[in-house]
């Protein structure tokens, strides 16, 4: 365990060095992410324009909270999960995954931590600012327990998202060319900026159980607002564990399918 902590620290250091080397890129990307955040918020203004009470059960400020979580989780996805795992597809195609497999540490751990986009920290700061503004407008502070719960749910969200990525990446062992599955997933993930109660019927089932966006943005927002039921919490935690176990199993099974170059 201690060895993996050291490894993680070294991988982070490598990413930090890379960011320091291209520091203009780092600053521009950070500034751009503020711009993204602004464009992520505008549709919400349109929905709630002229005081429409638009989404059942969600006031403007509460819906803004979901957008905040969306920006945060998107930051984690594109800053910590996507960069490392996207490289795996390349490794598989070129056969260079051999070099990872030869190292005396768990391959999944190594590829998952191989690359971080540190400027994505800007997304976290943006999200925290949004939370601050929302609570300021609501005229109250979040309860300590609610903060704790939402932090727990953040990890649930990250674990679920990570597991889904592992599942997608595992497909590369079989079909090789899956670059644009990235885009597909990112575009589906985009629906996560809206509270789940917006969606009805099939879409709601899809976003709750198959691609559990509800678990990633709506539930943490509800937790922070202090209105999460204990059953939702239990379901979220167990869903994340199921996803994590399944993805680990699929990864190991897919790895056995790997036959080096031109597999």
């Amino acid at each position: 365990m201690g060895r993996y902590v050291t490894l993680l620290r070294m991988q982070l250091r490598a990413s930090a060095l890379l960011a320091a080397q291209y520091r203009w890129d780092f600053l521009i990307d950070g500034a751009l992410s503020l711009f993204w955040a602004a464009t992520a918020v505008i549709p919400l203004f349109v929905v709630y324009t002229e005081g429409r009470a638009s989404i059942p059960g969600w006031s403007f400020d509460e819906a803004m909270m979901v957008v905040g979580w969306f920006i945060l989780v998107q930051g984690v996805l594109e800053g910590a999960i996507n960069p490392g795992l996207a490289a795996v597809v390349d490794h598989i195609r070129k056969g260079t995954l051999d070099f990872v497999l030869l190292k005396p540490a768990d391959a999944q751990f190594l590829v998952s931590t191989s690359r971080f986009q540190l400027w994505r920290v800007a997304s976290l700061l943006t999200a925290l600012t949004i939370f601050g503004v929302v609570f300021n407008r609501l005229g109250r502070a979040p309860a300590l327990l609610d903060i704790g719960l939402s932090v727990l749910l953040m990890w649930v969200a990250v674990l679920t998202l990570y597991s889904m990525w592992i599942l997608i990446i595992s497909a590369a062992f079989y079909v090789v060319k899956i670059d644009n599955l990235n885009y597909l997933f990112t575009s589906i993930f985009d629906a996560g900026r809206w509270p789940i109660s917006v969606f009805k019927g099939g879409l709601r089932l899809l976003f709750t159980f198959v691609v559990p966006l509800a678990l990633m943005t709506t539930f943490p927002a509800e937790a922070l607002l202090g209105r999460m039921g204990s059953s939702t919490l239990a379901i979220s935690v167990s869903a994340a564990l199921v996803f994590a176990t399944a993805s680990r199993w699929v990864w190991r099974k897919s790895l056995r399918h790997y036959t080096s170059a031109s597999s």
Partner: peptide, 16 residues
Amino acid sequence: LSTTMPFINMALWSAV
């Protein structure tokens, strides 16, 4: 398939 955003927006605005 990655340009399916209109369908998401359709669901959103129909609900609204």
